[in-house]
Design a protein around this nucleic acid. Structure first.
Length: 217
DNA sequence: GATAAGTGACGCAAGTACTC
DNA sequence: GAGTACTTGCGTCACTTATC
């Protein structure tokens, strides 16, 4: 049976390494590489029922931290999402799992180890590096907050990440090629869904969920 | 007054549930 | 299966409020 994996990573070398690692243990493997969230969403919208796993890099351009995880999990709940990242501190790994990731694969792993991890995730296991601990150390308030974040649409999450970056409505409108009034409408919806009264409070909440690139890297 | 943030309302499109 | 109603998300407009 052919397994199909979508890789979201903007580094061709990483894509090539993953392709090499997986081809040794999964000969019938079809890998789809995406370099942006929009590209990934487009692919998944067309064939989400044919994708067995999403491997997502936390430091993709244009989408910060765990925001992409929320978007992909919310829009395509039937497709497991595993995080692949150069960052490997226990807190980040536990957060990823708590926020719904099916696994967390540090890029420092050897290719055989990566292949083993991905094989287990494909088998339905939650995989993370040893000595990290379970999701129990994540505060329940953060999990509840994550659920509220997940209620946001993809466009709303994009706008929220830009708010976290300190961008003005006008700047957000320019980057998304929509009217400033449209951005304001989305901001109002975001504030209502998150139960906050201002974009500053929304940004603070998003910061708690690491909507910036972890560690600034 | 200028600028930015925020709200409410509207139309449109897509998806879903229900009825026949 | 076809038609209808409802919900949700997106985009826009007009307007108010706050700040400088």
């Amino acid at each position: 049976m052919t397994m199909r994996i979508l890789i979201g990573d903007d580094h061709p070398l990483v894509q090539a390494a993953l392709r090499s690692a997986l081809s040794t243990v999964l000969p019938d493997l079809d890998i789809i590489a995406c370099q942006s969230l929009d590209e990934a969403v487009s692919v998944l919208s067309a064939q989400s029922d044919e994708i067995d796993l999403i491997l997502w890099d936390l430091t993709m351009p244009g989408i910060q931290g765990f925001a992409a995880l929320f978007i992909l999990s919310a829009q395509f709940p039937m497709v497991p999402v595993a995080i692949i990242s150069a960052r490997q501190d226990a807190a980040t790994i536990r957060r990823a799992i708590a926020y719904g990731a099916s696994g967390y694969i540090p890029k420092s792993l050897s290719l055989p180890e990566m292949a083993e991890a991905i094989t287990k995730i494909l088998a339905g296991e939650i995989w993370m590096p040893p000595n990290v601990g379970g999701r129990g150390s994540i505060q329940s308030a953060d999990v509840e907050l994550a659920a509220r974040m997940a209620s946001l649409s993809a466009q709303q999450l994009r706008i929220l990440t830009m708010i976290v970056e300190g961008k003005l409505n006008k700047q957000i409108a320019g980057e998304l090629d929509i009217a400033e009034q449209t951005v304001k409408g989305h901001v109002s919806t975001i504030l209502r869904k998150l139960g906050v009264g201002s974009r500053t409070q929304a940004a603070v909440l998003a910061e708690r969920l690491s909507f910036r690139q972890p560690g600034g890297a």
